[in-house]
């Protein structure tokens, strides 16, 4: 019954392996080639920034890496598994167990309190409430106190919401953290705090992939992948 993951794959396997991946959005006005024969490899423990102009395909790329979307062609392996061969339920379980998302718009569940938002993926995975104190510990780690944890997302500031989102992304101990413009909706100071947290998570050994416009944020990553018109520039 338990949806816990396949266990960690061996360190020799790259967490992300893309070969010749294309993504086409068929539209009435004509097909949009959002990703154009991309080949990318990201090793475990890397801190990668994906940069590029608006509309270049950064979010599309991240969605493929996160198993939210499936490439039109090419091979994409996430922790060694070919996602084009996975069922919708296995892809969903991959998102639950292997990947942590941090979005520009925070994307917390409005009906649940901050605490419940963090606990939600835990319940999906373990089919029971968290009795280990992990939720509380993660919330404390990101600087959300017990009183704030009872609030609904609408009652929290943007920075607080993003902290809750980070705690939620970490709850099932994912292999990869994917961040799409995590500081895009935050002021500079709060953005810097969030970046400090992500950097710390990388220092603890996590794979962090971050999409950003901001060169100063891109500079904090170990490696930058530049995208233009769906192709890798450098």
């Amino acid at each position: 019954m338990n949806r816990s993951s396949d266990g960690r794959t061996m360190t020799t396997v790259p967490v992300i392996e893309m070969a010749d991946v294309s993504k086409i959005y068929p539209l009435p006005s004509g097909d949009v080639l959002a990703l154009d024969h991309l080949s990318i490899r990201i090793e475990r423990g890397e801190f990668v920034a994906i940069m590029g102009p608006s509309g270049s395909g950064k979010s599309t790329l991240l969605n493929q890496i996160g198993g939210l979307d499936v490439p039109t062609s090419g091979i994409l392996r996430i922790t060694g598994r070919n996602i084009r061969k996975m069922s919708d339920d296995s892809l969903t379980d991959l998102r639950l167990n292997t990947i942590g998302y941090i979005f520009q718009k925070f994307n917390l569940i409005p009906l649940l309190s901050a605490y419940e938002n963090v606990e939600y993926p835990y319940i999906l995975k373990h089919r029971c409430n968290d009795t280990t104190g992990r939720v509380s510990k993660l919330l404390a780690d990101v600087g959300i106190n017990k009183r704030m944890a009872k609030h609904k997302p609408a009652e929290l500031s943007g920075g607080q919401q993003q902290r809750v989102a980070i705690a939620r992304a970490l709850i099932n101990d994912p292999d990869i953290l994917l961040c799409d413009e995590p500081t895009g909706n935050l002021d500079t100071k709060t953005g810097a705090q969030i970046m400090a947290m992500l950097t710390a998570l990388h220092d603890q050994g996590r794979t962090v992939i971050i999409v950003t416009h901001d060169p100063s944020i891109g500079a904090q990553a170990e490696r930058t992948i530049r995208i233009k018109d769906g192709k890798v520039e450098s």
Partner: peptide, 15 residues
């Protein structure tokens, strides 16, 4: 949007 969030963080269709 909420459904999108739920799905993106690992909620199955059946759920």
């Amino acid at each position: 949007r909420e459904i999108g969030i739920l799905r993106s963080i690992g909620t199955r269709k059946s759920e």
